[in-house]
Design a protein around this nucleic acid. Structure first.
Length: 932
RNA sequence: GCGAGGGUUUCAGAGCUUGGCCAAAUGAGCCGGACUUAAGAUCCGGUCCCGCAGGGGUCCGAGGGUUCAAAUCCCUUCCCUCGCACCA
């Protein structure tokens, strides 16, 4: 265990100075408001959560130093069912759950014993979150903290929902859900023990008459009703006769049970063996009187247990029929083709089966074959003209509607696979829930509004826009009420709770007033009050006097902060929360108060594996902070990748980040103690510093935290190294080093605020570094020719080095031969030339008599220079061509440096002064080097 | 299956939008050296292959194509991650 960079007492002292520093309220500064999706405090924070909140904190701190009034608030989302389930499991002494909380989350026994109350869980972890977030140095305004079950927040949610209802965005309807009869509740993905990939499929029941009785055949392909040749029943199954909706249906007993959950009264009145149905007939409008035949592929546990047979288009049906033919039975039944499909003839299923060599109804490959045929027919199939001639996709919908409207068909929902088993061990069914409320995300007008606003929003990174666009198009009705869990009751139908994702869509507005609203009793908070605060609507019903004053203050505060500038959240929330909140803002707030931007995060890995609490693969944030120090954790989390990239928490990498932070401290301390005089080389470093200020600012403006660290830390370090090397052992300039330290500390303050705060104090600066002015580049200190000169020196040093390594002699002297002026002229001319291709450039330049005078050498020089040209960065090439460096002077000035670095004597000459063979090689920005 | 994003040198990760600055930034790891009583601390150097002159060769998931020129553009293919709804 090491407490890095700053000592524990220092850390605590700094936290103390920050205690109230980030409380914020409207001022005459420009505002910047950013929010993160608030946490669901059902467990302890791990380093993955850490990054979610540290990244926005870095931005918040950056903006604050830039002079913005910054609001970074935090609250806790405690709505929903999971925590209720957890408390129930703890109450039931479930060992896994108790161990998770005791060992992994390190909850003390006395606290744990109160966890049979879900509110105790969320209260405990909310406090833990706040405590650990403070340790991580998050610059949050805690006066605005709330939870989603606070009475005042509930009032706010009620207000929101009155508006949604008034805007016709919420409506009542029926909805099929996965349902567990034993739990008497709908079950979600996380509650499924088995069959979690099963989808709810919508079958159309095609009704066939058999005397007075109805045989409902379930199909996913109602358009094939024209091609039915017979029905299939399983001969060994005992079917039931059930009175359903006033008529007697013949279905499997499983089906009777299922249908009873789907809006039908079911009364079983008798049974009939499948074998008794065989060889009787049934009829409907489309196929007349047809026989009921036996088939063993029929599954009584799938839909109604009775199947209509379309042998021309369904491989199962064809095989079953062929089996009967082979026994010499029903040979008069012929498949009826009704769909034209690319690549198939009149009877696609028949062809497919015959070509596949499948022999039996129970062949495993039959499923795949069916899928192939169905897919082909669905995507490219067209009904024959006598059946309407439309594409299958369209015909399917139309036939289904027609059957429902005119021929008594209804819908039956069924899982695509079974069984589906609830976590309680009981089997789950599809149930149609009634009285369910839906958010009408399918509303095209609403979608259009959202899409339009989305187009105007800033999305980071821009790659996520496609996913947002798709989500807007894809969203349909969202069941927005629940029977169980914590939350706000639906105001006009209090038997329902508002579903957790739906009560968290406009709360960013609530943050703006969350501190002040605590002074007002929740009873006062009528919809009119919120209408005034958020929409500026006056009303007779508004309270008067002192309360009204407070409302005015809240209105002012809301208008100051809103709309929020950026919302941060993980990428898995794009398809729900992040898009929902745009919908809700559009429904409630006027255009100028809607979200401005979003930043989407990547996911976290721990040692290469996905970090999830459920698998125990987590590393707690607090543990990380005490193992490595808050600043190391911060720098690693925002520096190992850009926010939107996934990151991997690995010990060795974090460890080396820790060293970097420590190195920064000692480097800065060296800077503070530097006492050298000014030297010409200072000019270069000062110029570079301005460059890094500029680039770091740009990076953080674009939320590129990794890039920012790259520039502000590593690049800066590298230049400082070169600077020191150039001094040849002389002491660094006192003024420049203090200048550097001051800038450097501030550039890294958003990332490593504890360290920065500590060093700032050591520098003797007044006030908190967290509020110090963000460095601004001094344009006057930028000297491009000087930087170019240094670049030339670096490149030459590198050349020299690589030659020496190869030739492996101990050099006595080095002669640097600089290019003659006329080669520089060529260089500049090539840069300016618009001619394409070396040949053309040569032609063009040889027009010039001065150049032509150099004959063959000139041609070579043009070739060399143009090759050289495109090996340089374009802006460097341009700047060199515009203001050619005085190479002779540069090398003469740096003579002692090179002599010192390589321990040789150095001579600098112009190429015309040297008779050496190599002297001819001297080119612009690439002097010839003669080593002897 | 559908939708979105991605596959780069030992690793992480730049670069790819606007093809030539790319053998490919930077950091980590590893190797060697210096400093030290000693270091996991610091500093210096190396880290695809070949080369006793700054050069050459191979390389950016795989396979094709466009181009004088491709990690960068086009096509095909394989693999990975996320989402697919009542769940925070």
């Amino acid at each position: 265990m090491t407490e890095s960079n700053t000592k524990k007492t220092d850390t605590e002292e700094i936290m103390h100075t920050w205690e109230r520093a980030f409380h914020t309220s409207p001022s005459d500064k420009k505002k910047f408001y950013l929010t993160v999706a608030y946490p669901y405090p059902s467990g302890a924070m791990h380093v993955g959560h850490g990054r979610t909140y540290i990244t926005p904190d870095v931005i918040a701190r950056f903006k604050r130093m830039q002079g913005f009034e910054v609001l970074y608030p935090m609250a806790f989302h405690v709505t929903g069912a999971p925590v209720v389930g957890i408390s129930r499991r703890i109450a039931a002494q479930d060992e896994n759950t108790i161990n998770l909380y005791k060992d992994l989350y390190q909850v003390p026994q006395d606290v744990l014993s109160r966890f049979n109350d879900p509110l105790e869980i969320v209260n405990h972890f909310s406090n833990e979150y706040e405590r650990v977030m403070k340790k991580a140095g998050l610059s949050i305004d805690w006066t605005r903290r709330f939870t989603t079950v606070d009475p005042r927040y509930s009032k706010f949610i009620e207000w929101q929902w009155f508006h949604l209802r008034a805007g016709a965005h919420v409506a009542k309807g029926a909805h099929p859900v996965r349902y567990c009869p034993q739990c008497d509740n709908p079950i979600g993905d996380h509650d499924i023990l088995e069959g979690d990939t099963a989808e709810v499929q919508k079958f159309t029941l095609v009704m066939f008459r058999r005397g007075d009785e109805i045989i409902p055949c379930a199909t996913l392909r109602p358009e094939t009703v024209y091609g039915v040749t017979n029905l299939w029943v399983h001969p060994d199954v005992e079917y039931v006769k059930a009175k359903i909706d006033g008529q007697v249906w013949i279905i499997s007993s499983e089906a009777a049970n299922k249908i009873s959950l789907q809006d039908h009264d079911v009364e079983v009145v008798g049974t009939i063996p499948g074998s008794d149905l065989v060889d009787t007939t049934a009829n409907n409008k489309f196929c007349g009187e047809i026989p009921i035949l036996p088939a063993v592929f029929v599954d009584p546990d799938m839909a109604t247990g009775v199947v209509m047979s379309v042998p021309a288009h369904a491989p199962f049906d064809y095989i079953a029929l062929r089996d009967l033919w082979n026994q010499g039975m029903y040979t008069s039944i012929n498949p009826i083709g009704l769909i034209q499909v690319d690549g198939y003839g009149e009877h696609p299923a028949v062809e497919a089966v015959e070509n596949s060599g499948i022999l039996h109804q129970s062949d495993q490959n039959l499923e795949d074959l069916t899928a192939q045929v169905y897919l082909a027919e669905h995507s490219t199939g067209k009904m024959y003209p006598q059946y309407g001639g439309k594409p299958v996709k369209i015909a399917r919908e139309e036939v289904a509607a027609m059957l429902t409207e005119q021929y008594g068909s209804t819908i039956m929902y069924e899982f695509s696979q079974h069984p589906v088993i609830c976590r309680c061990g009981s089997r789950a069914y599809v149930k149609v829930l009634h009285d369910q409320w839906f958010l009408q995300y399918s509303d095209q007008e609403w979608k259009d509004q959202v899409q339009k606003h989305l187009n105007a929003m800033s999305l980071v990174p821009h790659e996520v826009r496609a996913e947002f666009d798709r989500t807007v198009g894809w969203l349909k009705e969202w069941a927005c009420t629940r029977r169980v869990g914590l939350g706000t009751k639906l105001p006009w139908d209090p038997s329902w709770l508002i579903e957790p994702l739906s009560d968290s869509t406009v709360y960013m507005a609530y943050y703006t007033i969350a501190a002040k609203i605590k002074e007002i009793e929740s009873e006062v908070l009528t919809p009119e009050v919120f209408d005034y605060i958020f929409l500026g609507v006056e009303s007779e019903k508004l309270p008067k006097g002192e309360v009204r004053e407070k409302l005015n203050a809240m209105r002012t505060e809301f208008l100051y902060w809103y709309p929020y500038d950026y919302r941060f959240s993980a990428k898995d929330l794009i398809s729900n929360h992040l898009t929902f909140q745009v919908f809700h803002h559009c429904a409630i707030f006027p255009e100028h108060l809607r979200p401005q931007g979003m930043v989407v995060f990547g996911m976290g890995l721990l040692n290469g594996a996905k970090m999830t609490s459920s698998k125990g693969n987590v590393y707690l944030l607090e543990e990380a902070i005490s193992d490595f120090g808050a600043d190391t954790v911060r720098m690693f989390l925002v520096g190992s990748g850009e926010p939107w990239q996934d990151f991997d928490w690995r010990y060795e990498l974090v460890k080396s980040t820790q060293k970097q932070v420590e190195r920064f401290v000692s480097t800065i301390q060296e800077c503070m103690n530097a006492n050298g005089a000014d030297t010409p080389i200072d000019h270069w470093l000062r110029s570079r510093i301005q460059e890094y200020i500029k680039l770091t600012t740009l990076a953080l403006d674009a939320f590129q935290t990794r890039q920012a660290i790259h520039l502000a830390f590593f690049s800066m370090e590298r230049d400082l190294r070169w600077y020191k090397k150039r001094l040849c052992g002389a002491a660094p300039s006192r003024t420049l080093m203090r200048e550097l330290a001051s800038v450097w500390i501030r550039l890294l303050c958003p990332i490593i605020p504890f360290t920065a705060e500590q060093l700032w104090k050591e520098m003797g600066e007044e006030g908190l570094c967290s509020f110090a002015a963000w460095p601004v580049p001094d344009e006057a200190a930028i000297d491009i020719p000087c930087e170019n000169a240094e670049e030339l020196l670096m490149r030459t040093e590198e050349d020299l080095d690589s030659i020496l390594r190869i030739i492996q002699i101990t050099p006595k002297s080095v002669t640097i031969v600089v290019a003659p002026e006329w080669k520089w002229e060529i260089f500049s001319k090539i840069q300016q030339s618009s001619a394409q291709g070396t040949g053309n450039i040569i032609k063009e330049l040889m027009q010039d008599p001065d150049i032509r005078a150099h004959g063959e050498a000139a041609v070579d020089a043009v070739k060399d220079c143009s090759a050289l040209m495109h090996r340089l960065p374009p802006d460097l090439a341009l700047s060199l061509a515009t203001t050619p460096p005085h190479e002779m002077k540069i090398f003469c000035d740096a003579k002692s440096f090179i002599e010192h670095a390589f321990s040789v004597s150095v001579t600098v000459v112009s190429s015309d002064e040297s008779a050496h063979d190599k002297a001819k090689q001297a080119a612009p920005f690439k002097p010839a080097l003669i080593i002897e």
